[in-house]
């Protein structure tokens, strides 16, 4: 066979080996399929309340988690299924929580917005915008107090930036040198309010400069870029206990929640379609295939495994009983 252009292929080009590439693809796809199933379950009435989908933003959670150790912590707001799954929670128990069943992560008492999993150091799902930023600094305070070298990643939306707690947390984390990485998922909207209608400074990463901490912006649709930037922050934080602020430029395809199905009042269809062109899963898959690190057969195997696991999750959640009535009154106060 005649050689034409020397093709640039292989792990060196992609920057990750085959095993990691498959894992990144797998984890992003798992979140995507999980969210699609959750939406379906919502329309069937199996999931109630508010349901906020992470579709379109998968590269942030998966990229960031891929540079963490199991003893590192993560904490998030209410659009947190992806963060919790990426950290290693069992999709079956996450789905059961959405269904309000006894085998849910939080025994069915938390729901979609309050996923917690101590076994993987996931510190929750918090639904008051801005409130978990101090909690993240507090967990970092405890880590430092105990002399450990773990870190915590705190995911939050652009909507938390105008809140006082964002500024209080950045100031205190910087002042006390706490090992926390604040990772803003700037998807350009807080419900229907675009960042330019909410922020005098829309370059969110720049707030980090005000507080004298390393800060940068990253393409949140590029899982490898997220890995690189968050990886740098984690290494620095582990070493010198300095916090970081990272702004990930990302986009949510769906409405704010299932009650905002189209998400069409405050943005155009064209905008949404345009953003879908840089889909994090498609882009990474194509790149990994082109580099020859992942094969078509790998992709098919990943898709099959993800589909199986999501089907299992739904079956598990369906089969899990409702929490018993007595549980209304348990877990209010801890007994010694």
């Amino acid at each position: 066979m005649a050689k034409t252009m020397p093709e640039r292929r292989g792990s060196a080009v992609l920057g990750v080996d085959a095993e990691l590439a498959r894992k990144l693809l797998h984890d992003m796809l798992l979140i995507r399929r999980f969210e699609e199933k959750a939406a379906e379950a919502y329309t069937l009435g199996k999931v109630g309340g508010f349901l906020h989908l992470y579709i379109g933003e998968e590269a942030v959670a998966v990229g960031a988690t891929s540079v963490l150790r199991p003893d590192d912590c993560a904490i998030s707001a209410y659009r947190e299924h992806g963060h919790c799954l990426a950290k290693g929670a069992d999709p079956r128990r996450v789905m059961a929580e959405l269904f309000g069943r006894r085998d849910g992560l939080s025994k069915g008492k938390g729901g979609s917005m309050h996923l917690f999993d101590r076994s993987v150091n996931f510190l929750g799902g918090h639904a008051i915008v801005g409130a978990h930023l101090p909690l993240a600094a507090g967990a970092a305070f405890a880590i430092k107090y105990e002399g450990r070298d773990a870190v915590i990643v705190c995911y939050f939306g652009d909507g938390a930036v105008p809140q006082g707690e964002f500024h209080e947390s950045l100031n205190l984390a910087a002042l006390w040198k706490l090992p926390v990485i604040y990772l803003c998922e700037n998807n350009r909207y807080a419900m229907g309010t675009s960042t330019d209608r909410a922020l005098a400074q829309t370059e969110i990463w720049k707030f980090g400069q005000t507080y004298g901490i390393p800060s940068e912006k990253v393409d949140g649709m590029d899982v490898l870029a997220v890995r690189e930037v968050v990886g740098r922050a984690v290494a620095r934080t582990r070493q010198d206990k300095t916090p970081s602020l990272i702004e990930a430029d990302t986009y949510r395809y769906r409405g704010h929640s299932m009650r905002d199905p189209a998400g069409a009042v405050y943005r155009t269809k064209e905008e949404v379609e345009r953003e879908k062109q840089r889909d994090p899963i498609v882009m990474f898959r194509e790149r990994a295939l082109r580099a020859g690190v992942v094969t078509e057969a790998d992709v098919r195997a990943i898709e099959k495994d993800v589909n199986d696991r999501i089907d299992e999750a739904v079956a598990f959640a369906d089969a899990s009983p409702e929490p018993p009535d007595e549980w209304l009154f348990t877990d209010i106060y801890k007994e010694d």
Binding site: G104, L105, S106, K107, H114, F116, R118, G124, G125, D331
Partner: peptide, 9 residues
């Protein structure tokens, strides 16, 4: 916290 985490935290 204790309640909504199902007794975890």
């Amino acid at each position: 916290m204790y309640y909504m985490s199902g007794g975890q935290f």
